[in-house]
Design a protein around this nucleic acid. Structure first.
Length: 359
DNA sequence: TCTGGGGTCCTAGGACCC
DNA sequence: TCTGGGGTCCTAGGACCC
C-alpha cells in the first residue's frame, strides 16, 4: 500500500437548527423547552431545543408523544422558508473561508481542509464569526475522514469542537453501541446484537468470516472498516440529484379512489413544475402507496422519452395507481421521478449525428 | 401516543441480448 | 436438441440519513 496524503476533514452541524432559528426571532423563549412540530394528528417532531430534549423529546418522534413527555413545551409549527434562509446565512459565511464544502442537508456540511495550513485556527474563527453574525452555534468535528469528523461532532454536540485521529476514534468509541457509526441503523444494530455484538469494540474484534456469513462479503467489509474508522470517501462539493419526489401522509386514511387520484395528480403537477424550474427531464415515473397496515408498495414505469410535462407524469402515475388498485385504506401516497437526462448516457435508438449525415 | 418528507444506496431477480 | 455465461436495463423492496 502506498502512503496516502494527510487528510483533514471537518464536519459542521448547526445545533438544534430549527429550534435555534425560532429562538432567534422569539428570544423570550430562550431557556424554555421548545418543540418544532406540525399540528396534524400524524405530525412528528422536526427539532427540539436542548431543554425539551431533557424530557426525552427527540426528532422524528410523534408530536403527540412529545407533548405527553413534555406538557409544558412550547410547540411551534415549522417555517421551512425561514430555515432555508437562515441556513443560507450560515453556509455562505462558511463558504467565504472554505472553497470545498459538501452540503449534507440543511444544517450539516463537510469541509475539505487538507490543504489548509492551520485548520483548527480557521475553524475556531469560523465558529466565532457564525455565532456573532447569525446567533447560530456550530458543532465541529475534525478528523482524517468524514466518518471520524461526523462521529466526533455528533457525539460531543452541542457546541462541540473536537479533533480526533482515527486511532483516537477507534479507542474512544470502542465502548459505545455500533449505532454511533453512520450507516449502522436500528436493523443492523439488532442483527449485530443477535451475534452478540453490542459495542464498536466488539465489532472491531468480530471475526470477518462471521460477519460475512451473516451480512454478505460487501457489508461485512463495510462494517469492519467502519468499526476501525477507515473511510476514504471524498468531500464532494457538487452532487446532482438523481430523483425527485413528492409524498403526502393523509390526516386520516383514504379509501376513496377519486380522492386518491386527485392527490396523485396534484403531486404530479408539483413535480413537473419543479423539473421545469430546474430544466431537468426524467424517464422513470413511480408511485408509492402506504396502506393503513403500513405495508408499502412502489410501482415504477420507465418510458422511452424524457419528460418534465406535468400531464404526462400525472397520466402515468394514475395508470400505475389504477393497476395496483389498493384494497385497503391508504395512509400515504407519493410520486417520484428518476432516470434524469444527462445523469447517465441516455439510450439513443439512432445516433443524432448519423441522422443528419447525408447518405 | 404510534410512526413526516425528501433523498441515497444496495440487493435480488427477471428480461433480453450476444 | 440442449445448454452456458456475461452484461445491461429495469423493477421492487429495504436500510439508512437528515
Amino acid at each position: 500500500m502506498t502512503s496516502t496524503p494527510r487528510r483533514v476533514i471537518a464536519h459542521l452541524d448547526i445545533d438544534a437548527f430549527y429550534a435555534s432559528v425560532e429562538l432567534r426571532r422569539r428570544p423570550e423563549l430562550r431557556g424554555l423547552p421548545v418543540i418544532v412540530a406540525g399540528s396534524g394528528p400524524r405530525a412528528v417532531v422536526t427539532t427540539a431545543s436542548y431543554e425539551a430534549r431533557r424530557f426525552g423529546v427527540d426528532s422524528a418522534m410523534p408530536a403527540a408523544r412529545a407533548r405527553a413527555l413534555c406538557p409544558d413545551a412550547i410547540v411551534i409549527a415549522p417555517d421551512f422558508e425561514a430555515y432555508r434562509r437562515a441556513s443560507g446565512e450560515v453556509w455562505s459565511l462558511v463558504r467565504e473561508q472554505v472553497p470545498v464544502i459538501q452540503s449534507a442537508g440543511i444544517d450539516e456540511a463537510y469541509l475539505e481542509l487538507s490543504e489548509e495550513p492551520f485548520p483548527v485556527a480557521l475553524l475556531r474563527a469560523l465558529v466565532q464569526n457564525v455565532r456573532e453574525r447569525t446567533a447560530m452555534t456550530l458543532s465541529v468535528g475534525i478528523g482524517p475522514s468524514r466518518l471520524v469528523a461526523k462521529t466526533a461532532s455528533a457525539h460531543f454536540k452541542p457546541a462541540a469542537f473536537v479533533a480526533m485521529s482515527r486511532e483516537q476514534a477507534v479507542a474512544h468509541f470502542a465502548a459505545h453501541p455500533p449505532r454511533v457509526l453512520q450507516g449502522i441503523g436500528p436493523k443492523t444494530a439488532e442483527r449485530l446484537i443477535a451475534l452478540g455484538i453490542r459495542t464498536v469494540g466488539e465489532l472491531q474484534a468480530a471475526p470477518t468470516q462471521l460477519l460475512a456469513q451473516r451480512f454478505g462479503e460487501r457489508m461485512a467489509r463495510e462494517l469492519h472498516a467502519r468499526a476501525h474508522f477507515f473511510d476514504d470517501s471524498p468531500v464532494e462539493p457538487v452532487r446532482i440529484a438523481k430523483s425527485r419526489s413528492s409524498e403526502l401522509t393523509f390526516p386520516t386514511d383514504v379509501a376513496d379512489a377519486a380522492a386518491l387520484e386527485r392527490a396523485l395528480v396534484g403531486m404530479a403537477h408539483e413535480l413537473g413544475e419543479g423539473l421545469r424550474a430546474r430544466g431537468r427531464r426524467a424517464r422513470t415515473i413511480a408511485i408509492k402507496v402506504r396502506l393503513d397496515d403500513w405495508t408499502t408498495v412502489t410501482r415504477a414505469r420507465t418510458v422511452e422519452h424524457f419528460t418534465n410535462d406535468s400531464e404526462t407524469i400525472a397520466v402515468i402515475s394514475l395508470e400505475l395507481l389504477r393497476a395496483y388498485a389498493p384494497v385497503r385504506p391508504v395512509r400515504l401516497l407519493g410520486v417520484r421521478v428518476a432516470s434524469f437526462e444527462d445523469e447517465s448516457p441516455a439510450p439513443s435508438p439512432q445516433s443524432p449525428v448519423q441522422l443528419v449525415l447525408p447518405v
